[in-house]
């Protein structure tokens, strides 16, 4: 199926670059953006820039920081304190 160029192809493509790099588009929209990007340096650069951005962000995902070892001691202390407070308020 042949897609015709539209006057708003550029603005529309710029808005949908992120959908495109996620593969979150139907065939027709994808083709529309690709046809436009083939002729538009801004949009083809935008695609490369967004792919680079996702690589940078995804590259940090594996780094879990360590919570302090005493975190559950503090939770236990808070729970105990709350129960003591509740017990005291129940007293006549």
């Amino acid at each position: 199926m042949r897609l015709r160029k539209r006057r708003d192809d550029h603005a529309w493509s710029q808005e949908h670059l992120s959908h495109y790099v996620d593969g979150d588009m139907n065939w027709r929209s994808r083709r529309r953006l690709e046809l436009h990007a083939e002729e538009c340096p801004d949009c083809s650069l935008g695609i490369r820039a967004l792919r680079a951005l996702l690589r940078l962000l995804n590259g940090s995902s594996g780094r879990a920081a360590a919570a302090s070892a005493g975190i559950f001691d503090r939770v236990r202390a808070d729970v105990a304190r709350a129960e003591t407070d509740a017990g005291e308020s129940d007293e006549p």
């Binding site: 650069l45 490369r48 820039a49 792919r51 680079a52 951005l53 940078l56």
Partner: peptide, 8 residues
């Protein structure tokens, strides 16, 4: 865009 693409 330029800085992002350069990082790749």
């Amino acid at each position: 865009d330029a800085a992002l693409v350069a990082s790749a």
